[in-house]
Amino acid sequence: MVNKEDMYTLLSSGKSEDLKKLIQHLLDSGEGPERILKEGLIPAMDEIGVQFRDGEIYVPEVLIAARSMHAGLSILKPILSKSSANKAAKVIIGTVKGDLHDIGKNLVAMMFEGGGFEVVDLGIDVAAHQFVEAIKKHQPQVVAMSALLTTTMKEMKVSIQAIREAGFENQVKTIVGGAPLSEKFAKEMGADGFAPDAASAVTVVRSLLN
């Protein structure tokens, strides 16, 4: 039987191999992969996200949990991909042009993955036209942009504008985050959402998609 608490215990302690064994055991016992994901792994990772957002845990704890989540997904994904039902929403993520910081963006990508999203990570130093090309190629529901510097955050506006001009305004939601940003600045840039931290990014995107 899928138990969120068991999953949480293994995720929060970073026990990747034990988590993989548990997932395999559940599959062997006849549990469906979708149920394991939606009633076990995702709520457990959500709990990690809430604790991170509330300052109860810190980046090392999120990293070891995300690494375990990734290990767990490596068993589930091949099985899930065979089923066309309930495809996960897709998020494209990248640090904007001129900015080479990746740890914040990586954390958000991990939280999205833990939240059940399919993540396409474009990396760092991503120019506006690269976001547009990636939308054409991957057909995402969300584009997430990160910037750490005051000198590069204005590049987000350029990218949002490019996405609009390419005609994707109604197809994708844009969300921005990063150390120098505020909700006010995000609105001024025309972003659909602003995430003050990595954990909130998942909540904000779920809310935008609903």
Binding site: K97, G98, L100, I124, D125, L148, L149, T151, T152
Partner: peptide
Amino acid sequence: KKMNKKITSRPQ
């Protein structure tokens, strides 16, 4: 490290 030559920023 990787350093952008066109824009002032910190390196990767």
